[in-house]
C-alpha cells in the first residue's frame, strides 16, 4: 500500500474498530442519543429562563437569542472537552504498547483514536442545532459557516495541545493528571459557556477574572463561534484579531504538547514503565 494512503487507511481502522465496539452496546447507543436531545432541551430552557439577565451582555453577538447563546456554549464545550480528553486514551498502557509494535505512527494513532469521538460529537452538534432551530428560535441564515469551521478547528488544535500534555503527564505519573481537571472547571467558570466573560465584572469589579479568561483558548472559541453565528466574517476585525491570538496559542500549545509527549514516551521506554498502570 502507498505510504500516502496508508495513514488514512490506518485511521479508518481505528474508526471502524470504535464504531463496531460502540454499536455492540446497543441500548447505551440509543440512550446516548436520547440523552443528547434531553441535554439540548435543558440548555435551551435554561437560556430562556436566564434570557432577561443575559440580554445586555449578548447584544454583541447579533440577532441570536439567549437560548441560542446557551446551546452554542454547551455544544462547543463538548467538542473542546473531547479534544482535550481524547489524547488521554492513548496513554492506556496495554493499547499504546501494542500499537507501538505495529508500523502505525503515533500521530496516526492519536488522530485515529479520536475519529469516532468526533463523529459522535458531530451527531451531538446536529442534535443541538436541530433542537435550537425547531424549539428555541435559532437562526441559521445569518451563520458564517466558514468562520465557524476555522474557529472550531483552531480551538480543537489548542485543546489537543492541552490533551497531549495531559497524556504525557499520565504516561509518567500513571494517574489522571490534575491539568485536565483544573482547566475544565476553570473554563466552566470564566470562559463563557453559560455567560460571556464581560458578565464576570458583576462579581469581580477588579476585572481580574475577565482578564484571566482571555488566557484560555476556550474563551476565544466561544466568543468567535457566537460571532460567526451572528454573521461575522473571517475578515471582520472582531474575528480576525482574536483568531490570530487563538492561532498563536493553538500552534504553541500543540508544539509544546507534542514535544513533551515525545519526551515522556522516551522516558517511559528508558525506565521501562510503558506497560505499567
Amino acid at each position: 500500500m502507498k505510504s500516502t494512503v496508508l495513514p488514512f487507511y490506518q485511521m479508518y481502522a481505528f474508526f471502524r474498530r470504535d464504531a463496531v465496539n460502540t454499536s455492540s452496546y446497543k441500548l447505551n447507543f440509543i440512550f446516548s442519543l436520547v440523552g443528547m436531545f434531553t441535554w439540548a432541551i435543558t440548555m435551551g430552557v435554561l437560556g430562556k429562563l436566564t434570557g432577561p439577565a443575559l440580554q445586555p451582555y449578548i447584544t454583541q453577538y447579533g440577532a441570536q437569542n439567549a437560548a441560542t447563546f446557551m446551546l452554542l456554549g454547551m455544544m462547543i464545550s463538548q467538542f473542546l472537552q473531547v479534544s482535550q480528553q481524547a489524547p488521554l486514551w492513548i496513554a492506556n498502557p496495554g493499547q499504546l504498547e501494542r500499537i507501538i509494535l505495529t508500523p502505525c505512527p503515533i500521530p496516526v494513532f492519536v488522530l485515529g483514536t479520536m475519529g469516532w469521538e468526533y463523529f459522535w460529537h458531530l451527531l451531538s452538534l446536529v442534535i443541538f442545532i436541530g433542537t435550537g432551530v425547531f424549539f428555541f428560535g435559532m437562526r441559521l441564515v445569518t451563520v458564517d459557516w466558514a468562520t465557524f469551521a476555522v474557529v472550531l478547528i483552531m480551538g480543537i488544535l489548542a485543546m489537543w495541545g492541552f490533551g497531549i500534555i495531559s497524556a504525557a503527564i499520565q504516561l509518567v505519573t500513571k494517574r489522571w493528571d490534575p491539568l485536565t481537571w483544573i482547566l475544565t472547571s476553570f473554563s466552566f467558570m470564566i470562559s463563557g459557556i453559560f455567560y460571556p466573560p464581560t458578565a464576570l465584572n458583576q462579581v469581580d469589579a477588579s476585572g481580574t477574572l475577565f482578564s484571566l479568561a482571555w488566557f484560555l483558548p476556550q474563551t476565544y472559541v466561544y466568543h468567535m463561534v457566537r460571532l460567526a453565528f451572528g454573521g461575522s466574517h473571517l475578515a471582520d476585525p472582531t474575528i480576525l484579531t482574536p483568531l490570530l491570538k487563538l492561532s498563536c496559542i493553538s500552534i504553541g500549545l500543540f508544539a509544546v504538547g507534542w514535544f513533551v509527549f515525545k519526551l515522556c514516551l522516551r522516558r517511559c521506554q528508558l525506565e521501562g514503565s510503558l506497560g505499567w498502570v
Binding site: M1, L6, Y9, Q10, Y12, A13, F14, R16, R17, V20, N21, S24, Y25, G94, Q95, E97, R98, I99, T102, P103, C104, G275
Partner: peptide, 26 residues
C-alpha cells in the same frame, strides 16, 4: 508478550485481527 494486551473484548476474533491487519497496511 506475557499478557493479552491490546484486544477489544466486544470485537470478534476476526474483527480484532482485521483491525491489526489494517494497521500493518494489508
Amino acid at each position: 508478550l506475557d499478557i493479552h494486551m491490546g484486544w477489544y473484548g466486544r470485537l470478534s476474533c476476526r474483527q480484532n485481527l482485521l483491525f491489526y491487519g489494517q494497521l500493518f497496511g494489508l
